[in-house]
Amino acid sequence: MKIKTLEEILKKKSSKTEFAILTNLENGDSEIYLPGTSPKGEFSKYAVEIENFFKSKKNGVIENSEIFVETYIKPIKVIIVGAVHIAQYLVDFAKSLNFEISIIDPRGYFASEQRFPDIKVINKWPKEAFEEIDTNSSTALIALTHDPKIDDPALQYALKNKFYYIGALGSKKTHENRCQRLAEAGFTNDEINSIHGPIGIKLGGKSASEIALSIIAQLVSETYKK
């Protein structure tokens, strides 16, 4: 690999642009490839295969060739509602995983930048906050306030926009009441049952960090099922 290529890779990495490194394993030539463009020179005949690596979010050697493709795919967007103590631990765990966290909390004293350095914190009610975030079916929602005023509008938004993971904190009783409210708001049983509530896998822990661990474990597991 040329130093120039390495420098370009580092630039793309820091600006979080999606790209791939194409390497000819026979002669060591490497190129940077941007999705949606045509691969250059010797790599041009593998355009379809290279795009397939992006689609499947995988790295590997193209079949019957000596071309290695390494993709850099944007992290999965995770929206947390409630800038609470558990959210601080979730932010820590997410750093070593492929998740990019945004936090919504209309309560200013919770959603301070000091409590969440380097994280996008939106100090607004969910309805307005979602106008500032691009979401799709590859987005996840973690609702942590267990306050219907704040959680419910976010859960409704996530259900309507078919987020792949929706979880809500709260006891069984709290969750039953939540399900009832969502049913009254016109959501189907299938939609309501898709919410992970009470949130997280069964770890047995009670502390904020243990609850965060159980939530992030469930999120990782659901991400692999996607």
Binding site: I3, L6, E7, I9, L10, K13, K16, E70, T71, Y72, I73, K74, P75, K95, S96, L97, N98, V220, T223, Y224
Partner: peptide
């Protein structure tokens, strides 16, 4: 779940070359 963007190994390579 690999977060390639945050992996520091290539940054370290650059530091070594420097």
């Amino acid at each position: 779940m690999k977060n390639s963007f945050d992996e520091k190994i290539l940054d370290e390579a650059k530091d070594w070359i420097k």
